[in-house]
């Protein structure tokens, strides 16, 4: 196995299609069956592990996968010690603070102490509001964040947006950007050293693709 690389890619969500396409351009094709977590590819040196985008940093940190493709937002949220060797340029979006349109707040620093903030990104959110000196109560949700303010569950949300349409449709407005995200190629720190030439080959192909 030592010569073989395992690349973890998202098995669903907005990053899945572009990640699969990128690998295809590099001549790395899986047999296409979605049911396999770990599958061989047309490149003998490369296996693909399909798992949740949010778990990819964990698989790479422990060295189960050598490389991984996932969003900068997820990498920051997990905060694990990894190499982040390439910005792949797709999956661009912003992590923003949003509130109901009728609220008077112009920027995140206007949000009152003790407000409730719903998010999937509790670590980033806590760091961000700690930095502003505002104590907030963080409500961790998994998806459908946009409805939290109108239902009275939260005063604000921290969520990803690429066009702003979903926020708009739910009567929300963005009042500040926390992070610009895009897909990144991450690498296990030990694999980078022990499988240097194989990884170098993949990254070169990826840059050219």
């Amino acid at each position: 196995m030592s010569g073989e690389l395992i690349i973890a890619i998202p098995n669903k969500g907005r990053l899945k299609e572009p990640a699969v396409k990128l690998l295809a351009k590099m001549g790395i094709l899986t047999d296409g069956s979605d049911r396999e977590y770990l599958s061989k590819t047309t490149d003998r040196e490369v296996n693909v592990l399909s798992v949740r985008a949010a778990d990819i940093p964990v698989y790479v940190y422990y060295g189960i996968a050598d490389l991984g493709i996932t969003g900068k937002d997820i990498i920051s949220e997990k905060g694990l010690d990894l190499y982040e060797i390439m910005d792949l340029g797709f999956g661009k979006c912003d992590l923003v603070v949003a509130v109901r349109k009728e609220m008077p707040y112009k920027s995140p620093s206007d949000i009152p102490q003790g407000s409730r903030v719903a998010t999937e990104f509790s670590n980033i959110t806590k760091r961000y509001f700690d930095g502003l000196g505002i104590q907030v109560e963080i409500i961790e949700l998994r998806g459908a964040m946009e409805i939290a303010p109108s239902l009275g569950l939260a005063d604000a949300i921290v969520d990803l947006t690429s066009t702003g349409v979903t926020l708009e449709r739910n009567g929300l407005k963005s009042i500040g950007k926390i992070l610009k995200s895009s897909a990144r190629l991450i690498c296990n720190k030990v694999s980078y050293k022990t499988k240097y030439s194989a990884i170098e080959m993949v990254t070169t192909k990826m840059r050219d693709a």
């Binding site: 030592s2 940190y61 422990y62 060295g63 720190k189 030990v190 022990t194 499988k195």
Partner: peptide, 9 residues
């Protein structure tokens, strides 16, 4: 210090 196959130093 690291060792091939073990993901963390």
């Amino acid at each position: 210090i690291f060792l091939g196959g073990i993901g963390t130093p």
